[in-house]
């Protein structure tokens, strides 16, 4: 059972658990410099699934692991290197 939305101090929708994941070795051009990296489908506490990279990973990653959303640089765009920011997920920081 997922906890009810809105409980606790942090907005519930930014926490979730890993539904499934992969470790990308052969990356698209815009992400080639970051490979290998983890890409996951995260089941948010409100039940929605979201596709995002995992970051700040030290040890083993498992389906069911809790994660929380953070803002990170995703890639750079174009010749002038405009930074594209977005969301990634990391193990919860205590």
């Amino acid at each position: 059972m997922m906890p009810a939305a809105g409980a606790g101090a942090a907005p519930s929708a930014i926490r979730g658990e890993i539904y499934s994941f992969t470790r990308v070795m052969e990356a698209p051009a815009a992400f080639a410099g970051q490979a290998p990296y983890y890409l996951a489908l995260v089941r948010l506490e409100d039940g929605a699934l979201i596709t995002a990279q995992l970051t700040d990973i030290d040890g083993k990653v498992c389906i069911g692991d809790p994660v929380e959303m953070v803002t990170r640089k995703l890639t750079t765009d174009g010749e002038r290197g405009m930074i594209v920011y977005g969301y990634k997920f990391r193990p919860p920081v205590r």
Partner: peptide, 9 residues
């Protein structure tokens, strides 16, 4: 794709 996904991923 914006998250770094490929078909294979």
């Amino acid at each position: 794709a914006l998250q770094g996904a490929s078909l294979t991923a």
